[in-house]
Design a protein around this nucleic acid. Structure first.
Length: 565
RNA sequence: UGGGGCGUAGCCAAGUGGCCAAGGCACCGGGUUUUGAUCCCGGCAUUCGUAGGUUCGAGUCCUACCGCCCCAGCCA
């Protein structure tokens, strides 16, 4: 079994789709499974697509098959070449390889056209002159059957002639369509003589102006699958009805194989919205900066935020595949990055909201180099050296004027350990006119260098710090969930944007970072000890002006405890 | 009132008629810890949408009912 897909464990039970693939492989029906990921190049990929990508490419990796990347580009009025490139980049970044199996439905336009003529010759398709509005009326309703189009019984010759003229551009957009001749009284609406081709005098991003008719999804998809010898065509639940048409088209034509369509539930996540329309709205109305805003659950947004490909793959493997519409808790996604980054991210110290500390009994001009581990559980990741001096910064919320008993940090007269440094005790503090604490005076115990005392005295709290004169200044963007309710778009009467979390991005300037952070590469994740995982923003950072994104916080049982009381 | 699907814990999800209904997340206890992190240990469905039925035995089979999702684009 390949491990390309991440954390596929041998003892994990197979989902229902993998069971089918497994059986088909063992029975010899499909010794080499072939799947495909078929995006329409009309937008950016998001976490929901990642589920499909991991499923299709995952199966191909696990069963020794192939997975094609095929662009479903049959509607030139919505699609753009730019999206093709971003989709390829995203799939690649997620860690999957389509090798030389890159296809476009538009590459099949000639063949598709031939199949359409074949259908006409078999008396299974006809050109219809009804307007879009009329077709809709003739279609009937959920409970009433449709009625036959007056053009339904044209002769083969007439249909062929008209269809060729459609192709040659003699008719106006929308004036005629090619329809399948199935059953206007079918209980399945998709079978009531569905449109197969429409006239669209729009140039296509790949075929240019060659075509002025374009095939519809239902006609294109099954035939594309067939042409590529796809064994298992996986799609989401809303296509269940379409399977009837998928099978009808293939059964109505002379084809060498008949791929099996299998539907699974799309991904829904709490505290976010997933539809392309709503994501677009967030961008256009400037609720976020862009498609790759770190708050967006687009693949590019997640990448910029600092999510690792592996964490996304692990997440997709974790949530499973089923037919039940479900809502995965956002915490599961967040947990997936935490788990991954906990293993791999080097630990560093950064002070987000600095409070200056003067160690009164520390020599004025002295600087010491203190050794700090890069990962306490992984000595193989080495250590680094940290400058220590008389003036430091600590986190503002690591000091309280009147701390409760369970507060293990600094307060008047209290002693804490500076991570890898010394024990210090707060002896006094200064406040400004507004009553805000501006400076702490502490003393240190020279016997406690490195963080332990010869007398074995217990110090419960350990806090992070940065030497004031060695600190690198930077900005930090504290990202949080974009919405503050579980189901932002649950109520159709309420605008989902009214649930936007005003603190989805808190920008903090003047943060004090340990020196090594001045030369870190964009996109490399580190753990700011006691706070969370961060990475340098690839867009906003400039020379000498680092901007760090918070990928996700560390679990914080202290914060949780305070929330409850 | 048509058709297609789905209902196992707060959220996912195994289970394919036979020991006490996997596992993960969340939650609650406890331990280790120079990150209130990580890690470790323990707890967490007398019950599988509901009601009947078949069977020695049913979450798994049958019947009825209830609830939720999708379908009436010349979108995919």
């Amino acid at each position: 079994m390949s491990t390309t897909s991440g954390s596929t464990s041998a003892d994990k039970p197979l989902d229902f789709i993998r069971q089918i693939v497994d059986q088909d492989q063992k029975s010899g029906k499909h010794p080499t499974p072939v799947t495909r990921f078929p995006p329409e190049p009309n937008g950016f990929l998001h976490i929901g697509h990642a589920k499909s990508i991991c499923l299709n490419f995952g199966i191909s990796n696990e069963f020794g098959g192939r997975c094609h990347l095929r662009f479903d580009d049959t509607n030139p009025s919505k699609e753009e070449i730019e999206y093709v490139e971003s989709i390829k980049q995203d799939v690649k970044w997620l860690g999957f390889d389509w090798q030389d199996n890159l296809f476009f439905a538009s590459d099949y336009f000639d063949k598709l056209y031939e199949f359409a003529e074949q259908l006409i010759k078999r008396g299974k398709a006809y050109v219809c002159d009804l307007s879009a509005e009329e077709i809709r009326r003739y279609r009937g309703t959920l409970t009433e059957p449709g009625t036959d189009s007056p053009y339904r019984n044209r002769s083969e010759e007439e249909n062929l002639e008209l269809f060729r003229k459609m192709k040659d551009g003699v008719f106006a957009d929308g004036s005629r369509v090619l329809r399948a001749k199935i059953d206007m009284s079918s209980t399945a609406i998709v079978m009531r003589d569905p449109v197969l081709y429409r006239i669209l005098k729009t140039s296509h991003h790949r075929t240019g102006d060659k075509w002025c008719i374009y095939p519809m999804y239902d006609f294109t998809h099954c035939l594309s699958d067939m042409l590529e010898q796809i064994s298992h065509s996986l799609c989401t639940l809303e296509f269940q009805d379409n399977r009837l048409l998928y099978d009808w088209v293939l059964d109505s034509l002379e084809t060498p194989c008949h791929p099996r369509q299998i539907e699974f539930a799309r991904l829904n996540l709490t505290y976010t919205v997933m539809s392309k329309r709503k994501l677009l709205q967030l961008v256009e109305e400037n609720h976020v900066e862009s498609w790759d805003d770190p708050r967006m659950l687009t693949i590019s947004g997640l990448r910029r935020r600092g999510y690792t490909p592996r964490s996304i793959r692990n997440f997709c493997n974790l949530i499973g595949i089923g037919k039940k519409q479900s809502w995965i808790d956002m915490g599961v996604l967040e947990n997936a990055v935490r788990d991954d980054l906990n293993e791999t991210a080097p630990r560093v110290m950064g002070v987000i909201e600095p409070l200056k500390v003067v160690i009164d009994n520390y020599p004025e001009d002295q600087t010491e180099e203190i050794s700090a581990q890069n990962h306490p559980q992984k000595p193989e990741l080495g250590s680094r050296s940290l400058p220590f001096s008389r003036e430091l910064y600590i986190e503002k919320n690591d000091f309280m004027e009147d701390p409760p008993r369970k507060f293990f940090r600094l307060g008047p007269g209290r002693e804490v350990r500076l991570r890898y440094g010394y024990y210090i005790t707060c002896v006094s503090y200064e406040k400004d006119a507004d009553g805000k604490v501006t400076l702490l005076h502490c003393t240190y115990d020279p016997e406690t260098r490195g963080g332990s005392s010869p007398d074995g005295r217990k110090v419960k709290g350990t806090i992070h710090w940065v030497s004031a004169k060695h600190a690198v200044d930077g900005d930090i963007h504290l990202y949080d969930r974009l919405f503050n309710v579980e189901h932002p778009d649950a109520d159709k009467e309420v605008d989902f944007k009214s649930h936007l979390n005003p603190h989805s991005r808190d920008i903090v300037t003047g943060c004090k970072l340990e020196p090594s952070l001045g030369s870190i590469d964009a996109g490399v994740q580190v753990q700011f000890e006691r706070q969370g995982y961060f990475c340098l923003d690839s867009v906003l950072s400039g020379p000498g002006k680092p901007v760090f994104n918070r990928v996700v916080t560390l679990r914080d049982s202290w914060a949780r405890m305070n929330k409850q009381t």
